[in-house]
Amino acid sequence: MECERLEELLPSFLEGALSQEEKALVESHLAGCPDCRGLLAVLARTQQALAGLPELEVSPGLRARLLAIPERKKKFSFSFDFVLKPSLQPVFAAATIFMTLLSFYLFNPNKATIDRTIDRKVHSGYSEVEKLYASAGSFTERLGDAAENVYVSVKNWKIFGGNERDPYTE
């Protein structure tokens, strides 16, 4: 058996995990091959060294950082949780309906016609308002005139000393 092929069997040989047949093969090769015997010895030391690497303790600083993670997570998820509140459901429903209606308008093939109608409606509404404003203006004027007339006639009533000469103006 070649050394290269035998090498592959050495770790299992060391662990005692080979079949009787393979074990015998390896043993007979090792008896006549100092190189492979050397490698087996180093392999055993490697295993020992690996097993001898001790475990380290977690530093208090890292422990504190790890313990703080659930709090961080909670804060993080809280910032998104509010979206799922049941009280916001009507708002989302209304928004959905609004968006649906808006999409009916935005993607309507007769959008131009709708726009024109809206335009016309807005304009006629605007002129209605203007008219209303003008008549309100004239009404205010008439009201003002009437108020002045009332004021003059009240002032001219005898009981308030109307039509008498004012001593200070002479």
Binding site: P11, L39, R45
Partner: peptide
């Protein structure tokens, strides 16, 4: 096994 052999060769 490959890893162990590789390490053993480094050591050697």
């Amino acid at each position: 096994n490959r890893g162990r052999l590789q390490l053993a060769k480094i050591l050697k």
